[in-house]
């Protein structure tokens, strides 16, 4: 228990956002390098960017506000279906659809969040799960509009800024999603370092004490939920735009679980967990699931067990511990 909290504490230490740490440039350099050293893998990289954005939105809830949800895909899926349906109905500008999809997810987040956040514990978990299953079933049954189980076909988008078409090699998609991820990340970095971000940590740590400080907890948590919904919706829109397809999977409980595992693998509550957890997870999945899905489940389960028992702070916490151990050795 104390071990877990200590690693959590290390991850929550405030970073002075005006000071950029050297390590913070790493993911972006890595992404750009990847483009040059691994041509032909743009679509996979694009998928990774989209999932990182999705995981970031979950980090705001799980890592900062302490809201555990098992239905985060509901918002990702809303964004994806919103973008896809707009496209099918003739609105194909990527920026416009992305903005509208973000708003749609925020609206769904506002309604479900306003209801869900009145409860806590098991009821909250169940409501998040029920909301996700509900939206999944609606999309599944509304075949005339959504294509049901077959997915939404015929999704196309016009060139980005009217100049860059979404090409077969996926270059536009690569830079577009990387750019959106970068902007969204900057915004989130500001958010979690603001007084608002700190008050979320306070609620996570001890909501009773926050209330005794005069904090309107429900409102604060709902605000965080709507913001996270919006970002999840944006990620969903990117998914629809970069793959030109919306599968029913985007609303599934399985995706909700997967994204939670990715985040925890990287480490929640520090914004950087998503950047480590998602690529590691997706790479592992790519390597292991190909041979045999059973194999992949086993690895996934074993990994998750190891994380819960031995490294609740995820890979980022492990890396931090390793770094400080090395520093300590060097100093001696």
């Amino acid at each position: 228990m104390s071990h877990q909290s200590a690693t959590l504490a290390a991850a929550t230490r405030p970073a002075d956002p005006t000071k950029l740490r050297a390590l913070e440039v790493l993911p972006w350099v890595a992404a750009l390098t990847f483009y040059f050293v691994a041509p032909g893998y743009e679509p996979l990289a694009t998928q990774v960017f989209v999932m990182i954005l999705f995981a970031l939105s979950l980090d705001l809830l799980v890592g900062f506000a302490g809201i555990v949800t098992l239905g985060h895909a509901a918002l990702f899926g809303t964004g994806a279906y919103a973008a896809g349906l707009l496209s099918v109905n003739g609105i194909t500008d990527p920026i416009v659809t992305a903005v509208l999809a973000t708003l749609a997810a925020a609206a769904v987040g506002l309604v479900t969040g306003a209801l869900m956040l009145r409860t806590k514990g098991l009821a909250l978990l169940m409501l998040s799960l029920a909301a996700c299953f509900l939206l999944y079933e609606v999309a599944n049954q509304a075949t005339p509009w959504t294509g049901g189980d077959d997915g939404l076909q015929g999704v196309t988008f016009s060139p980005l800024f009217g100049i860059f078409p979404f090409d077969f090699r996926g270059q536009t998609a690569f830079f577009y999603s990387l750019g959106v991820l970068f902007l969204a990340f900057l915004a989130m970095r500001r958010l979690v370092n603001s007084p608002f971000g700190w008050s979320l940590r306070g609620i996570r740590e001890n909501d009773g004490r926050m209330r005794a400080l005069g904090c309107p907890i429900y409102l604060r948590r709902l605000t965080a939920y709507v913001l996270a919904s919006a970002i999840a919706g944006l990620a969903g829109a990117l998914q629809a735009q970069t793959t030109q397809f919306v599968a029913l999977h985007v609303l599934s409980f399985q995706l909700s679980g997967d994204i939670l595992i990715m985040l925890i693998l990287g480490g929640a509550g520090g914004l950087y967990g998503a950047f480590i957890g998602v690529p590691v997870y997706m790479l592992a999945q790519d390597l292991l699931a190909k041979q045999d899905p059973a194999n992949w489940y086993l690895w996934q389960g074993a990994m998750l067990l190891a994380i819960t028992f031995f490294a609740p702070g995820g890979l980022t916490a492990l890396a931090q511990q390793a770094l400080s151990a090395i520093k300590g050795k060097l100093r001696r």
Partner: peptide, 15 residues
Amino acid sequence: AERDGIAARMFRPAF
């Protein structure tokens, strides 16, 4: 921050 009514501000960093 709660006392001074800035706890819901989202842009300027806490420090």
